[in-house]
Amino acid sequence: MNKEEARLLFMDYMYGELDQDQEQELLSYIRQHDDLRQELEELTEAKSLLQHLPVESPKEQLVIMEPEIKATTHWWKGLFSSLIPTSTFARTSFGLVASVFLFVILAASTDLNMSLNDNGFNLTFGEQPPVQQGFTPEQVQLIVDQVQRQNAQMVNRIVTDAQVQQNLLLDETLSSFASYLEDQRNYDLQQIAQGITSLEQTTFNRFLQTDQVLGEIIQTVSYEN
């Protein structure tokens, strides 16, 4: 403990708000410091002098008057005070019950309807709007059959169209191939004809040359003879 801490405890000590251990510690410390002891004595003296200040009591008793209420409302007040409880909890409960009762009355008188579905929360008053009913099992089966039929027809049509298309493509391909073969044959024939013509020409020329050579040979032999 230091002097500042001791001074902090002066007020608690003077007014008896210090526990026994702290009090012993403070008194022990003060005994070792004359200046603190002197200061505590001065504070205690100031405190004791203040006790001589007399007390002055009020001259008259205050009375808070109850607010004046018109006589015509007295029976209402009596009725309400007899119906409404006084404690906060009971008043709150009474208020909640009254609110629920009022809500039920209003709901009944206005045909209130509340519902919760996939589209959200519905709150309606009065006559109910027509509500769309769900399909019966027979209707569902009918719809399924119809859908199946439509699907089968559609698949059949698609397959037929595909076959026709495929046949057309095949015909076109075969036709093209035949045209190609024909063209190739004609070309080959032309080549062969040209070859034969060329061969005939060559053979003819050989014959001519042979004849010419033979003529020369014969002429030569004749001269020698």
């Binding site: 002055e56 009591s57 009020p58 008793q61 205050l62 009375v63 808070i64 109850e66 607010p67 006084t86």
Partner: peptide
């Protein structure tokens, strides 16, 4: 809870101390 006399009792208890 509506009992105004209760407040007058509180006044009677505390008036002297507040006045002092």
């Amino acid at each position: 809870g509506g009992n105004h006399q209760a407040f007058n009792k509180l006044v009677g208890r505390w008036q002297d101390r507040i006045h002092h």
